[in-house]
Computed example of a mutant assay.
Amino acid sequence: MHRLPGPDGAGAGGAVPAVLAHATGFHGRVWGPTARRLPGYACHAVDLRGHGDTPVPDGYTFPWAEFGDDVLAAADGIAREPGTGLVGIGHSAGGAALIFAEAARPGTFAALWLFEPAVFAPPLPGGVLENPLIEPTRRRRPAFADRAEALRNFGSKPPMASFDPEALEAYVDHGFTAEGDRIRLKCLPDNEAQVYVSSVVSEAYDAMAEIRCPVLLVYGEQTGTDTRRRLTDRLPKGELEVHEDLDHFGPLTHPERAAASIAAWFGGLGLGPDAG
């Protein structure tokens, strides 16, 4: 777990403790640009197992419910005043991890903000759930000569070419480890692909019905209207926010927009730094 600097550049501090969970293949510190735009929040970003600095044993199959266990461990590690509400902020797989965590231990979070959580609704009769990212991920280049080469590579092609520069630099700076005379991804391509394999049987859709705290689902242009509404309606206290000009990587391409949405959502619930 990483304590992310706030707007003043200092370590996490503030009235509102928050757990931030990342998308598949990334790590907690890509949330840095968002945290810097959240005055009054103590942002703690977790590296889910197999990502960033959190290792996994060989042959691990990445059952998604255990990402929820990672989030609960992070929540338990945050020192806060008794009665202070903890909020959760998640992107893609990180959003699903927060759903699993709150379903497993209701009341852990006072509210959740989830950008395109990786939750798959059951297919229509005769349909089959598939994740098209599995095979391309297995073929991903795992190593580079140095961080400068990796930064040039990722910054020259989609989707990372559109990332906020600070988010892209954080991905490279903290997403690689030294290996001989080169650097390699901490989240190995085969491990990331296995996360996608497990995603289609994650049961996150079932877990959504168990969430009793307020949840804002935030979507960009690539998710259809029917899917947005179906998933929002699955939550007992779900609300929907749509940004038609953002794609699935909205928090990484436009962290200022993510921060504004986060602050407005929690503030409107009386959970912001000015509450009470």
Rank of each mutant, 00 (worst) to 15 (best):
M1I: 14
R3I: 04
L4N: 15
P5T: 13
P5A: 14
D8V: 10
A12I: 09
V16E: 15
A18I: 08
V19N: 11
L20F: 09
L20H: 01
A21N: 00
A21H: 00
A23V: 03
T24I: 12
T24N: 07
G28C: 12
R29E: 13
R29H: 02
R29P: 09
L48N: 12
R49K: 10
R49Q: 12
D53S: 10
P55W: 01
P57H: 09
P63T: 11
A65H: 15
F67A: 10
D70W: 06
V71D: 05
D76V: 04
G77M: 10
I78G: 01
R80S: 12
E81G: 12
V87C: 13
V87H: 12
G95Y: 00
L98Q: 13
I99R: 03
P106M: 04
T108K: 05
F109Y: 06
W113Q: 13
L114M: 14
E116R: 01
E116H: 01
P117Y: 02
A118E: 01
P123D: 14
L124C: 05
L129T: 12
E130R: 02
I134K: 03
I134D: 13
E135Q: 14
R138W: 09
R139A: 15
R140Q: 14
R140F: 10
A143Q: 14
A148H: 04
A148K: 03
E149K: 00
L151Q: 11
L151I: 04
R152P: 04
N153L: 02
F154W: 09
F154R: 10
S156K: 01
S156H: 03
P158V: 10
A161P: 00
A167S: 15
E169Q: 13
D173I: 11
F176T: 15
I183F: 00
C187K: 04
L188K: 13
P189K: 02
D190W: 02
N191L: 06
V195D: 12
Y196P: 01
V197F: 07
S198A: 15
V201S: 13
S202A: 15
A207N: 08
A209V: 08
P214G: 02
P214C: 03
V218P: 00
G220Q: 05
Q222C: 04
G224M: 06
T225I: 07
D226G: 09
R229W: 07
R230K: 05
T232V: 13
T232F: 11
D233C: 14
R234Y: 05
L235P: 04
K237L: 10
E241I: 01
E241Q: 11
V242D: 12
D247K: 06
P251Q: 05
H254W: 07
P255L: 06
E256V: 07
R257N: 09
R257Y: 03
I262W: 01
I262N: 06
I262Y: 00
A264M: 06
A264W: 00
G268Q: 04
G268K: 05
D274P: 04
G276S: 08
